[in-house]
Measured scan of single mutants.
Amino acid sequence: GTVKVQGITIKVPNPDKAYKIAKKLAKKYNLTVTRKGNTIKVE
């Protein structure tokens, strides 16, 4: 899958794990995490 952070896309082998990490970071930096299948977008 991929993770998008402010325009940066990161390929990740485990979208579930990445999503959990993204959620933690999002809370810390007051961002929104959206997930569509293997693509995770943080904005």
Rank of each mutant, 00 (worst) to 15 (best):
K41G: 03
Y19G: 00
K23V: 12
T34L: 04
I10D: 02
K11R: 13
K27D: 04
V42E: 01
K17I: 13
V3I: 12
Y29Q: 00
K17R: 10
K17T: 09
G7P: 04
Y19N: 00
P15Y: 09
V42S: 02
A22I: 15
T32F: 09
K24L: 14
Q6N: 13
K4N: 08
I21W: 14
K27I: 10
G37T: 01
R35E: 01
K20T: 08
K27P: 02
T32Y: 09
I21F: 13
V5K: 06
K11W: 15
Y29T: 01
V12D: 02
R35D: 00
V33L: 07
N30R: 09
K27C: 08
G37F: 06
K20S: 09
K24Q: 11
V42L: 12
N14D: 13
T34M: 07
A18G: 02
T2S: 07
K4Y: 14
V12T: 05
A18Y: 10
Y29L: 07
Y29A: 02
K17L: 14
K20W: 13
P13V: 10
V3P: 04
D16R: 09
T9L: 11
I8N: 02
I21S: 02
T9H: 07
L31W: 11
P13H: 11
Q6A: 14
T2D: 05
V42C: 09
I8F: 11
N14V: 05
K11Q: 12
E43G: 10
T34A: 05
V5T: 05
N38W: 07
G7Q: 06
G37E: 02
L31P: 00
K28M: 12
G7F: 11
L25Y: 09
P13K: 13
K24E: 08
A26Q: 04
E43P: 03
G7A: 08
K20A: 12
I21K: 02
I8G: 02
G7Y: 11
Y19H: 02
K23I: 11
K20L: 11
A18D: 00
A22Q: 00
T39C: 14
V12M: 07
E43H: 11
K28E: 05
Q6I: 12
T9Q: 07
A26N: 00
T32G: 02
I21T: 04
R35A: 03
K20D: 09
V5E: 03
G37V: 02
E43A: 10
G37S: 04
A26K: 04
E43V: 12
V12S: 03
N38F: 04
T9G: 04
K36F: 11
T9N: 06
E43F: 14
I40C: 14
T32L: 12
V3E: 04
G7L: 10
V42H: 03
K4R: 10
A22V: 13
K28Q: 08
D16G: 08
G37P: 01
T9K: 08
Q6M: 15
G1L: 12
P13C: 15
K24M: 13
D16K: 10
P15R: 08
Y19I: 04
Y19Q: 00
T2V: 12
N38V: 05
V5N: 05
G37N: 05
N30C: 15
I8R: 07
K28A: 10
V3H: 05
V5G: 05
K20N: 09
V12G: 03
T34P: 00
K23G: 03
V12F: 09
V5R: 06
K36Y: 10
T32M: 10
A22D: 00
T34S: 08
V5C: 15
V3C: 15
Y29K: 02
N30A: 08
L25G: 00
G7R: 07
A26L: 10
T2I: 13
V12E: 01
A18R: 01
V33A: 03
G37L: 02
A26C: 13
N38T: 06
I8H: 06
V42W: 03
D16P: 04
V33D: 00
I8T: 04
V3A: 05
K4A: 09
I10P: 02
K11V: 12
K24I: 14
G1E: 06
P13R: 13
K20F: 08
N30T: 03
K36P: 01
I21Y: 11
L25S: 00
K17Y: 13
D16V: 08
K11E: 09
K23W: 06
P15S: 10
T34D: 01
N30V: 06
K36Q: 12
I10Q: 02
Q6E: 08
K27A: 10
I40V: 06
T9C: 15
T9R: 07
I40Y: 05
G37K: 05
P13Y: 10
I40M: 03
K4C: 15
